[in-house]
Computed example of a mutant assay.
Amino acid sequence: MALQLIELTPDRADRAAADALIESAAKALSAGNAELVEAQVPSDFGRVFLIAEERADSAAADALNTASITFDDIAEVRLVGADLETVKASKGSAQYLVEWDLPEGLSMDKYLARKAEKSPLYENVPETQFLRTYVREDMGKCLCFYDAPDTEAVERARQVVDTPIDRLHELSQRD
Rank of each mutant, 00 (worst) to 15 (best):
L84P: 08
A116T: 11
G92C: 08
S43K: 11
P42E: 03
I6E: 07
D19C: 07
T66D: 13
E127V: 03
D44C: 10
E85F: 06
F130D: 12
P42Q: 06
Q95K: 15
G32H: 01
A26R: 15
K118R: 13
D62N: 14
A67W: 02
A116W: 00
A94K: 13
P103L: 05
G92Y: 06
I69F: 00
G46S: 07
K115Y: 10
E53A: 10
A56W: 02
F71G: 00
G32V: 01
L21A: 04
D101W: 06
K88R: 15
K118F: 00
R15S: 10
S93E: 13
D57P: 13
V98Y: 07
A60H: 07
T9I: 12
D83L: 00
V77A: 02
A34L: 05
P10H: 02
S43L: 09
T128S: 13
T128W: 01
D57R: 12
N33M: 03
L29C: 14
K118Q: 14
F49L: 12
E38A: 09
A52V: 10
F71K: 01
V98C: 06
L21H: 08
S107G: 08
E99Q: 14
E127T: 13
I74S: 06
D101S: 11
D62S: 12
S24H: 11
T128G: 05
L102S: 03
L84A: 04
T128L: 05
L79S: 12
M108V: 06
A82M: 10
Y122G: 01
K118A: 15
K115S: 14
A113E: 14
F130Y: 14
D72Y: 00
E127G: 06
Y122L: 04
A59Q: 07
L8W: 00
R47T: 06
E99P: 04
Q129K: 15
D109E: 14
D57F: 04
A31D: 15
R132I: 00
M108D: 09
A16Q: 12
R132P: 10
L112I: 07
L102A: 06
E99F: 03
A67E: 05
L36F: 06
L79F: 07
A61Y: 01
E38M: 14
A82S: 15
V37P: 05
I69H: 08
G32C: 00
K118L: 10
I51K: 05
Y96H: 13
A94H: 13
R15Y: 03
G81P: 11
W100I: 12
V125C: 02
D72E: 09
D19V: 04
K27I: 06
R12P: 01
E54V: 03
S24M: 02
V37D: 04
E104G: 15
E123C: 00
L50G: 03
E38Q: 12
F130P: 10
V41F: 01
P10Q: 02
Q129V: 11
L21C: 03
D72S: 12
A56M: 05
E54N: 09
